[in-house]
């Protein structure tokens, strides 16, 4: 190797070092930048979730909505009051529904019935449904888990 080649080789080495170093930096900066950009869903639905329009929920009817990884049921009593419960039946984890004819929350799997306060009143369910808070902001029903 001649002395003339040495600085040229070092130049290539530095250039390569810069290139790869830039690549390494980019693979750090890219995830961080993506992380910093606000995600599509801005926050965890840990404590509350939107359960749709309050107007659209007529008295003596109910609606099942996802709340985290589990379903919740929001009902409007015949008297017009909004109430929300966990929609997972306490018997065998089926999803309950509102039965306007019975005016009760009803589980189709084994005919379990809960009253409008979520209490297990007929059939096999061993426990009442977990109650949630239901509030209205604007026209949106917001279900909140009780801390």
């Amino acid at each position: 190797m001649t002395h003339a080649e040495e600085p040229a080789r070092r130049g290539v080495l530095n250039w390569l070092l810069g290139l790869w170093g830039g690549g390494v930096l980019a693979s750090i900066v890219y995830p961080v930048a993506r992380y910093l950009a606000p995600p599509d869903i801005p926050e965890a639905a840990a404590l509350s979730t939107n359960a749709g329009s309050a107007q659209a929920l007529a008295p003596n009817s109910g609606r099942v909505v996802p709340f985290g990884a589990r379903p919740a049921i929001v009902i409007r009593t015949p008297a017009g009051e909004l109430r929300a419960f966990s929609a997972t039946c306490t018997h065998l984890d089926c999803t309950v529904q509102y039965r306007p004819d019975l005016q009760r929350i009803w589980c189709a799997c084994h005919n379990g019935e809960y009253d409008l306060n979520g209490r297990n009143v007929a059939g096999p369910p061993p426990r009442p449904l977990d109650p949630y808070d239901a509030n209205v902001t604007g026209d949106e029903i917001v279900i909140t888990r009780r801390a």
Binding site: L17, W20, V24
Partner: peptide, 9 residues
């Protein structure tokens, strides 16, 4: 990229 960087380094 890291490996290339390390080798060059």
């Amino acid at each position: 990229l890291v490996l290339a960087f390390l080798v060059t380094l």
